[in-house]
Write a protein that binds this DNA or RNA. Structure first.
Lengths: 154, 154
DNA sequence: CGGTATGGTCAGAATGACTGTCTAAATAGG
DNA sequence: CCTATTTAGACAGTCATTCTGACCATACCG
């Protein structure tokens, strides 16, 4: 009954979560490179994922959302400013604060990333089937919704 | 129809892959810490995942399997030797080569990690249901099997 | 006003990955 | 047997990403 080359043993859960994610990351950043964003690295996604696309966001807010320190987030924001994806403006509501806001290039990046995500989903659907893909999306969504507050202290 | 607090918008595929994996990692390393392995870090898993548990493996082999350079793998192996999870012995089959082999403590780590993986799967099943869990495992296995050779040059 | 909280910066360190160079051992061809 | 090539690994240096700790400036509250 055993297939030729496919591993027969039960994969660990770590593998089942890690391999798809890591493959997705590799694919996405390779495509971004081809499409005019060669200087974007994986760590930058912590910013792009969490920023308010309209108003911009404070470094402190971004850090909280991404689950990292202000200093680390400030480092990432700095590098994205350097690369012309973000600009810093003063927050009208609080003179201590600054907002990191998407530039034109930053908005292009977000749009491209959105398109690529959908593209990847399509490619995966070709491989495992449309119905399976819908079911996978459904199950993973349930998993994500079930996660918060699970680990004590998270 | 919308639920109270749950995000209504369609989650991106990146999020659906990233969040479960990152939650799993956080949980696993917190449990490892409690169970007597406080010095193990995420990067070490590249070794533990790929090592031959009986014979031990060469650094070069580990690096290939984990998809990283020999130098990076050598760094990780070094630190695991320092922490008494690995020992270095000379390879009887090739006098240039050395084998990194699990110590008693290293084998305990692997056993604990295996148990914890199953434990996590159980906890997740409690949240989303046994049947859903089985289906999720099935679908993710299909995904993992569909991945290799997809990205050109991988 | 004075004290505390908040937003952000600076300095320094640790981790983990990379490239490049080098030695020593093994293997292949003559 | 001898040389040339390959292979396993070590050594040196760099870079990206994250952390801690110390700090400054502004804002808010009694």
């Amino acid at each position: 009954m055993n297939k030729v080359d496919v591993p027969v043993r039960r994969l660990t859960f770590g593998t089942l979560f890690r391999e798809p994610y890591s493959h997705y990351l590799g694919w996405l950043y390779a495509r971004l490179q081809e499409r005019g964003f060669p200087d974007i690295r994986v760590a930058h996604s912590a910013v792009v994922r969490t920023i308010d696309a309209e108003r911009g966001s404070r470094v402190t807010t971004l850090a909280e959302r991404a689950g990292m320190t202000k200093q680390s987030m400030a480092y990432l924001v700095d590098s994205l400013v350097e690369l012309d994806y973000l600009e810093i403006v003063s927050d009208p509501e609080d003179k201590r604060a600054k907002l990191a806001r998407l530039t034109r290039r930053g908005r292009k990046l977000m749009a491209t990333a959105g398109t690529l995500g959908a593209e990847y989903e399509g490619l995966l659907a070709e491989r495992i089937g449309e119905d399976e893909m819908a079911e996978l999306r459904h199950l993973l969504t349930r998993v994500v919704e079930a996660l918060p507050g699970w680990t004590p202290g998270e």
